[in-house]
Design a binder for these strands. Structure first.
Lengths: 243, 243
DNA sequence: GCTCACTGGCTGTCTGACAACTGCGCTGAT
DNA sequence: ATCAGCGCAGTTGTCAGACAGCCAGTGAGC
């Protein structure tokens, strides 16, 4: 049994970052605008300047603002961003979550094709072990759904690892972890309720077969079938609605 | 004539971030390890603690480290990352750049299919205007290659904008800007030298046609053809080698 | 052996200070 | 009147020191 993570009080710099990015997202801050001075922000938020500086340094790190000594800090253009980040409020709305899922799927599908060209026998063995874990999970009435869910994630990671593209791997690890954190419970219920695990496994078996055969076109095709289907199954769930 | 951006001295926190991420990438720091205390790092780097704190706060922002009051800062697991970031040294090696290009293409291709289902007549008009700009650029012997390069980027953004997936849009804006910054000169030379612009335009015309027709499968297919071809043309360049 | 208060160290935050830099207005010379 | 040059106020970047709250380990007391 895992306990829910408690709602730890966010740090002061984090709150300021959230406030500033909120203002940016709301259009109150436009690219090119100058931020208030650190001193002004400090008094406004009622904190020390060091706290404001930490917050702004994070925004600078993402390329969201640029600061010039003696002048101030300015909101930069969207194309100046240097990081892709998923904010927690993306998971508030199910629709947002499905969009993230589609983004992830797009990368996974491409990566599956690359994996079909770079796979080794060891890679295949690893994937088939994961498939076996999925099949075993079916007969586990207690934790089967959870095991299946984790095995599906493992398969994605296994595919990404053999594709010889560490950037894509990093991206998938990041986005999939974020999605899984916010999707685990409903996805697990999904598997359990619809009893579609067998069909999902079959889709993935055929995907791994294509990779094993070294057929990138078939791998891409089957990856698309499975991951699009999975997203569709999730979207079709009656209880998959905004809280 | 544009001047090269001067080599501005990186800020102290930035250097510390680079040093720490370098140690992490080199395996000297493993997930779970504890960082030296802020005081120790400050004396080691010869800076004030505030500078170290800014550096660590950036790493915390990315989920690379987690800190606990009274204990210290710890390297977190890779799946705890909350941001995808492209470091400048990714562009040092051409091979890395091609991998980033493939990552971008994967998303663009998926997005093209979504765009085919969500496009409006205004969207199509915008895309066709961009295609016209490409054709016009051919007869511009002076800046034609640059204009073509920028128009290709604009088309990608235009497609991403109509696909109704702001996460994918954000991702594409970010990664494409980064790639373009580091690819502009060689890509422009590519267009100019090989005189393949006409063929590239034809590929994109067919892509826009598919989107206009509302045919996601064709859009995906043609997007793949064009962007894979573009990457291939780049990779095939004789002068596209590591410096 | 077990319990528990203590203690040293760490992070988070605050305060004050100073250097380097920038934009702007003012002054004074032409 | 014009304009070059100067100084000034404001801003960021960095430094030093301080303190509260928290935590792990230690050692005394039972």
């Amino acid at each position: 049994m895992k306990f829910k993570s408690l709602e730890r009080t966010p740090s002061l710099p984090q709150e300021i970052v959230a406030s500033l990015t909120g203002a940016l997202h709301a259009g109150e801050l436009q690219p090119g605008d100058r931020l208030p001075s650190e001193q002004a922000l400090a008094t406004e938020f009622g904190v020390a300047r060091t706290v404001v500086r930490e917050a702004i340094s994070q925004l600078k790190y993402d390329g969201i603002v640029q600061s010039r000594v003696g002048v101030g800090a300015f909101i930069s253009q969207p194309q100046e961003r240097t990081a892709f980040r998923i904010s927690p409020e993306c998971f508030k709305k199910r629709k947002e979550l499905l969009k993230l899922l589609r983004l992830r799927n797009g990368v996974v599908i491409e990566v599956a094709a690359d994996a079909a060209q770079a796979r080794s026998s060891r890679d295949i063995a690893r994937m088939e072990a994961i498939l076996k874990e999925m099949r075993d999970a079916i007969s586990d009435s207690l934790h089967g759904a959870e095991r299946h869910f984790e095995a599906e994630r493992q398969l994605i990671l296994a595919i990404a690892k053999v594709a010889d593209n560490e950037h894509a791997l990093n991206f998938i690890v990041m986005i999939d972890s974020q999605i899984a954190e916010n999707l685990r419970s409903v996805a697990v219920k999904n598997i359990r309720a619809t009893e579609l695990a067998a069909a999902a496994i079959e889709e993935q078996v055929r995907l791994v077969e294509a990779i094993k055969r070294g057929d990138p076109i078939a791998a891409r095709d089957r990856a698309r079938k499975h991951y699009d289907n999975a997203a569709q199954r999730l979207a079709d769930r009656a209880d998959f609605v905004d809280p």
